[in-house]
Write a protein that binds this DNA or RNA. Sequence first.
DNA 1: CCGTTTTCTTAACTTAGATCAATAAAAATC
DNA 2: GATTTTTATTGATCTAAGTTAAGAAAACGG
Lengths: 199, 199
Amino acid sequence: MIPSAEDLEKVKEFISRFVSFNDEQLNAFLQTMEMKRVPKGACLMEAGQVCDYVAFINKGHFRTFCIINQEEVTYNFSFEGNFYTDYPSFLTRQPSMEYHQALVDSEVLVVSYEKMQRTYRQMPVWEKFGRLIAEFILVRIAERNRAMLFLSPEEQYLNLMKSRPKVFEKIPQHYIASYLGIQPESLSRIRKRLSESKK
Amino acid sequence: MIPSAEDLEKVKEFISRFVSFNDEQLNAFLQTMEMKRVPKGACLMEAGQVCDYVAFINKGHFRTFCIINQEEVTYNFSFEGNFYTDYPSFLTRQPSMEYHQALVDSEVLVVSYEKMQRTYRQMPVWEKFGRLIAEFILVRIAERNRAMLFLSPEEQYLNLMKSRPKVFEKIPQHYIASYLGIQPESLSRIRKRLSESKK
DNA sequence: CCGTTTTCTTAACTTAGATCAATAAAAATC
DNA sequence: GATTTTTATTGATCTAAGTTAAGAAAACGG
């Protein structure tokens, strides 16, 4: 599906936070984007496939999960107005271990691997954008890394409330528990502990 | 200190795994490198400073640690023949939380932030290298992230033995424990458990 | 609106790692 | 090579999260 001009407003705004561009450059990139609807509960991608896209979430939100020992482990959440992909799979062309599931009816703008690489080659401004966005995501992942190593689940929970309040507005609690690396029962107890110590 | 041609062999080999370049391009980059010796136990950088360099380890190895609640938490190890930096600090120009400590007498080739940005602007090949290296590191950090979320300390320990045997040759065990997010006593017990179950 | 499914909480019990303390082993220093 | 320092192990006890099971609350679907 070809996105309308209106659909492309948000992604344009996002990109302009990283690089400056003229109309020709912008259009060359936007023309590589394809619009996809993903109904609630469906997966844009499933484990075993090579992740062949970078996606910009135009509407809705997603969770990323893996299945380890027949159990779902929620790995991340992605919200409206952001790019996401399975970077390891997208970059190395190896099969992904992830599922990208829409938690509500959603719309994404996707760029295929092939088109992304072509855009990098054709216009240096997008090469630069590619570097900056990889660096940006790297910093976020590194911070998550630190949190997991340095903080107890309870501290991580408090941390998450501060840094990503959106998560608590939109995401069921048992997914949040999984994201924190603990069982839903444990998160429930942590919440109880915190609410009691506040009194 | 200006590095000799010999000193630059390893870094040249490293770069050539990511991009193709001609002599002019290569020399433009290599000329930005400065050689530094770091004696055993000393830190190339300490928390509170902005990390102003990307370092290529020409000789020796380092550990990265933070101090949380007056306690050192070892965050990573870096070996000969690799680049490293505190990406979050280097990119955002915010003070680092990390210490980069040489575990043996070491030599590094450093490029300052300013010079690195200039090189990006001057030659597209280095912009591309910048993207590829950021992506490469991103993939590694993402894998570590997964390990921490999905695996028990015991599984992470076995994982690390497979994926980075060098760590066990060169790094004291209590640093490895810290890297795995557990106490040295616990790692000792895990090792005991594993050696007993093997029999 | 009612029944079903999903999500969240609570309780009892188990377990892996933390903590504290002591000692053993290995490495560094003189 | 003896001494100090660093590193690794072991034991006893404590604690937070896991596990299993059950029931309450909320959201969903017809």
